[in-house]
Simulated assay, not measured.
Amino acid sequence: MKGKLLLLLTLTGLLCTSCLSIGLKMIGAYDKEATVSHYSNGDKEVAYIPMKHIGPKEFYGNVKKKVDSLQAEGYIVYMESVRVKDSLTPQQKDTLKWKARKLTGVNISTSGYIDTINKTLMGYKFKNRKGLINQPRYFVLGVDTIKGRVVDVPMNDLIAAYEKEYGPIVLNDCDHTLPWDQKYTCGKIAGEESNAMILDYRNAHLAMEIIDEKNKKIAVIYGALHENGLYKELKIRDSLWIKKPLR
Rank of each mutant, 00 (worst) to 15 (best):
T110V: 14
N128F: 10
V63M: 01
Y113R: 14
Y113A: 15
A219T: 10
G23N: 08
L225F: 14
D115G: 13
D157P: 00
T17M: 08
E58K: 00
G105H: 04
N41F: 01
K97R: 09
L171P: 14
Q71V: 09
R101W: 00
T185H: 14
L206S: 07
Y138K: 10
K217S: 08
K216Q: 03
K125G: 11
N195R: 03
K65R: 06
K85N: 08
L15N: 13
Y60L: 12
K65T: 15
D200F: 07
R149N: 08
L199P: 00
T17P: 02
H176K: 14
Y30N: 05
F126H: 07
L199I: 08
E233Q: 07
F126N: 11
E209P: 00
S69E: 15
K85C: 07
T120M: 10
R237P: 00
E165P: 02
Y60M: 10
K217C: 02
K2T: 14
L11V: 01
I114R: 09
N128T: 03
T12Q: 15
V150P: 03
Y162H: 04
L20Y: 04
G61E: 15
L206E: 12
N128H: 01
E233A: 04
I189N: 10
L7R: 13
K32H: 14
G23C: 11
V82D: 04
N134H: 10
P56W: 02
M1T: 07
Y124V: 11
P50C: 03
T177F: 00
T10W: 02
G142M: 02
K232E: 12
L9P: 00
K216M: 00
N203M: 10
V151F: 02
T185E: 15
K25V: 04
K64H: 08
G167C: 08
V140Q: 06
I117S: 06
A219I: 06
R129E: 01
T110Q: 14
I76M: 04
G229C: 11
K127S: 06
L158Q: 06
K130W: 01
C16V: 12
P90E: 02
E33C: 06
I117H: 09
H176P: 05
G142Y: 11
T120W: 11
L132I: 07
L24S: 13
A224Q: 10
G61V: 15
E227N: 10
S109D: 13
N203I: 09
T89C: 00
K127F: 14
G28N: 04
S81L: 06
I210S: 08
E163Q: 04
D144N: 06
L7I: 12
L20F: 04
L7K: 12
I169C: 03
I211D: 01
I218M: 03
M79T: 06
P56I: 12
I198C: 10
T35Q: 13
Y78W: 04
K125V: 13
L178N: 15
Y162G: 07
L234T: 07
H226K: 10
K216E: 01
L24D: 06
K244C: 03
I22G: 00
N172Y: 08
S40F: 07
N62H: 12
H38R: 07
S81M: 06
I76Y: 14
Q182T: 15
G187F: 14
D173R: 12
P245C: 02
L158P: 14
N215E: 12
Y78T: 02
A29K: 13
K217L: 01
